[in-house]
Design a protein around this nucleic acid. Structure first.
Length: 274
DNA sequence: ACGAGCGCCTGTCGGC
DNA sequence: TGCCGACAGGCGCTCG
């Protein structure tokens, strides 16, 4: 589920808190419960429990779609995958069915990782680079330039859409925001990466940044029962709009499969490559 | 190097 | 009503 804007929204919510549910920064972990063992990528549940208890949450950040909680000694990395969710709730509230991992805090609240489909993963490590090291550049990093992007696109020969979804190539895009960025830049998802001109590359990077920033501004995208609180779903131009008119030209949006993933294009604005 | 196929999971929805 | 397949914000693995 969550892509960069949704994870960024969690960073803000957990880091700043909100009325009646203040920030978890500064809190100490006083207990941990692993309810679905495979949620833990590392270490094993026993080690995890003994190692995390007593550590304080010092900082909250993000790298790609990974949420990073800097603790006193270690770093806790959380990847929500398709259906992961994070809740801060009173420690005495009943356990929801899909809670997979619980951190009890020193103020009577708990941080709960809830994950219906069990794809989400959590790492506790003193070497986060071991997990994050292979990630591509952050799309919103101002040091990442249009020229860098052009060269990266030309260093491979890939279909655009699977390339944008490849976290080694660029970190943070998922199915929604890649469809939105391609639609905005009028590029077809099957376009070969090394066929883009410099100006098309620049446009694509601009579009990626625009859709990510708008997603962040609107607190992410909420669809069905997955992810709460965002409203970017009301502003999507291509994703999930099969048969509905393209906001630019009115042509019905078409759904196709690219790289095994549902993909949404305007056949008029995004002409298929030869 | 690249793309397809599949596994991992649970839940919802639409068709028959 | 019940059953069954398709599908879902991700990603890692195999195999050509």
């Amino acid at each position: 589920m969550p892509e960069l804007p949704e994870v960024e929204t969690f960073v803000r919510i957990l880091g700043e808190g909100y009325p009646d549910n203040p920030s978890i920064v500064g809190r100490e972990v006083v207990d941990a419960r692993v309810l679905w063992a495979r949620t833990l990528a590392m270490p094993d549940p026993g080690t995890f429990q003994s190692r995390i208890v007593g550590q304080r949450i010092e900082r909250i950040g993000r790298r790609g779609k990974f949420l990073r909680l800097s603790l006193s000694q270690d770093e806790l990395l959380i990847h929500l995958r398709m259906s992961g969710d994070l809740l801060v709730e009173p420690s005495d509230s009943p356990l929801a069915v899909h809670h997979r991992l619980i951190l009890e805090l020193d103020d009577g609240r708990r941080l709960a990782f809830n994950d219906t489909r069990k794809f989400g993963r959590v790492w506790l490590t003193d070497d986060p680079q071991q997990v994050l090291g292979e990630l591509g550049p952050e799309p919103l990093d101002p040091n990442f330039t249009g020229q860098d992007f052009y060269q990266a696109l030309h260093s491979r020969r890939r279909q655009l859409k699977p390339l944008l979804l490849d976290q080694h190539f660029i970190a943070g895009l998922g199915n929604i925001y890649s469809d939105e960025a391609l639609h905005r830049s009028k590029l077809h998802p099957l376009h070969q990466s090394d066929q883009l001109s410099e100006s098309q590359s620049r446009d694509l990077l601009d579009s990626i940044r625009i859709v990510l920033k708008e997603g962040i501004r609107r607190n992410g995208t909420s669809i069905d029962w997955v992810y709460r609180g965002g409203d970017f779903q009301n502003y999507l131009r291509a994703y999930g709009r099969t048969g509905l008119p393209c906001p630019t030209c009115g042509t019905p949006i078409v759904r196709l499969i690219v790289g095994q993933r549902s993909t949404h294009v305007c056949p008029n604005c995004q002409p298929a490559p030869d």
